[in-house]
Amino acid sequence: MRPLQLISILTTTVAVVCSLYAPQPIQRVLAAHFGVGLQTSALFITVALLPLSIAPLAYGLLLERIQARRMLMVSVLGLALATTALAFCDSLRPFLALRFAQGLLIPAALTGLMTYVATHSRPEAVQRSMAFYVAATIFGGFFGRFMAGLLTTAFDWRAPFGAIGLALSACLVLLLSLDPDARARFERIRPSAMPEILRRPAFLRVYLIIFCCFFVYTGLLNFLPHRLASLDSGISEMRIGAAYLGYLMGIAAALTSRRLCRILGGERNAMLAGLALHMTATALFALPWLTTAFLSMFPFCAGMFFVHALAPGLLNSLSDQNRGMVNGLYIAFYYTGGTLGSFLPGLVYARFGWTALVTVLCGMLGLALLLARGLCLATQAQAAPASEG
């Protein structure tokens, strides 16, 4: 892959992920504009995450026959139009409809980007290129939030959507540098394989662990702007966006996960350590200090992305067939946890307060720790039939 092509891929990845998370730090402004409360404002993220929980499986059949470049051009064009249109919404329903449309287009764009990286990198450079891709998705998650808060403070809430729409339009020009002959080669999805995979103890445990992790991650981040505003009524959207700076720790966690895994003595111990860090940082958010919330974001994100970096490798090391379905189910559990986490904790927050919300989230991570403790036995049970065969 030529340097210009890699730059085009990474820039587009950042822009696409920015479009997903931009509304999160400016929920208060959007809620005031549309005249809605805390629970309804959570839908700004929920409706975009919802298609991501099912789209990766649904796209499997379609993408076998579509060129990666063509899929990218169409999905990024649609995403640019939908994102720009958000800036012109004056009522809630069209806004949520456009967010849902974004949720349908984002997985197509990200799948095309990831596929292009995998099929156009030299075999010895695939892991390095994929590491850059993962880092770009994490950076996009931070930059989308920070930039939205900054532009909203400097201008108004419409500015971030206009800026991201313009950036996605510019990415269309960059994507013209990609070679047009890449086809997305995915293993054909067999629905009958799903119950077979879910009956495997190790697989189900890993799926439930990542479900719990992303439930907690999205649940805390989606309601964090309201919490920060309760601690400091004069806080600006720019400072709320800056609170997500700890998100960048995810890049370091993802890039060093394999080395740390070896130091900690394997995937099980490493996953336990990541979950313990994630849970400890989550508990710190219960403290009533703004500085603690800002600082806790760093270990909170590091723990989450460390587990997220380890889990797919563990699944694929245990799977000798149906990897398309194995990975598709992982993404489905991941985003289903995120979808539910972006909304359900708000019910607890609205009725019982922030401390109760944090307690529920810590309980979810406690469940994930119990699942991880049993992962060693489940892994052995999974490996036994393979060795007998």
Rank of each mutant, 00 (worst) to 15 (best):
residue 123 P to S: 07
residue 124 E to V: 06
residue 124 E to C: 00
residue 124 E to S: 12
residue 125 A to E: 15
residue 125 A to P: 00
residue 126 V to T: 09
residue 126 V to H: 01
residue 127 Q to H: 12
residue 127 Q to W: 00
residue 128 R to D: 00
residue 130 M to F: 09
residue 130 M to D: 05
residue 131 A to E: 00
residue 131 A to R: 07
residue 131 A to N: 11
residue 132 F to A: 14
residue 133 Y to F: 15
residue 134 V to N: 09
residue 134 V to C: 07
residue 135 A to C: 04
residue 135 A to D: 01
residue 136 A to R: 06
residue 139 F to T: 14
residue 139 F to D: 11
residue 140 G to H: 02
residue 141 G to C: 06
residue 143 F to L: 15
residue 143 F to P: 10
residue 143 F to A: 15
residue 143 F to Q: 12
residue 144 G to W: 10
residue 144 G to N: 13
residue 144 G to D: 13
residue 144 G to F: 11
residue 145 R to I: 13
residue 145 R to P: 13
residue 146 F to L: 15
residue 146 F to E: 12
residue 148 A to Y: 09
residue 149 G to T: 08
residue 149 G to K: 08
residue 149 G to W: 02
residue 149 G to V: 05
residue 150 L to M: 14
residue 153 T to Q: 14
residue 153 T to W: 03
residue 153 T to C: 00
residue 153 T to R: 01
residue 154 A to V: 13
residue 155 F to G: 04
residue 156 D to M: 04
residue 156 D to A: 09
residue 157 W to R: 07
residue 157 W to D: 08
residue 157 W to F: 14
residue 158 R to M: 10
residue 161 F to M: 09
residue 162 G to M: 14
residue 162 G to Y: 11
residue 163 A to K: 01
residue 163 A to Y: 02
residue 163 A to T: 11
residue 164 I to H: 03
residue 165 G to W: 07
residue 165 G to I: 10
residue 165 G to K: 09
residue 166 L to Q: 03
residue 166 L to G: 08
residue 167 A to Q: 00
residue 167 A to Y: 01
residue 170 A to N: 01
residue 170 A to L: 15
residue 170 A to P: 01
residue 170 A to W: 07
residue 171 C to S: 11
residue 173 V to P: 00
residue 173 V to G: 06
residue 173 V to D: 00
residue 174 L to D: 03
residue 174 L to Y: 03
residue 176 L to H: 05
residue 177 S to R: 12
residue 177 S to W: 04
residue 178 L to D: 05
residue 178 L to K: 04
residue 178 L to Q: 04
residue 178 L to H: 05
residue 179 D to E: 13
residue 179 D to Q: 15
residue 180 P to I: 01
residue 181 D to R: 14
residue 181 D to K: 13
residue 181 D to T: 13
residue 183 R to S: 08
residue 184 A to Y: 00
residue 184 A to E: 11
residue 184 A to C: 09
residue 185 R to V: 12
residue 185 R to E: 13
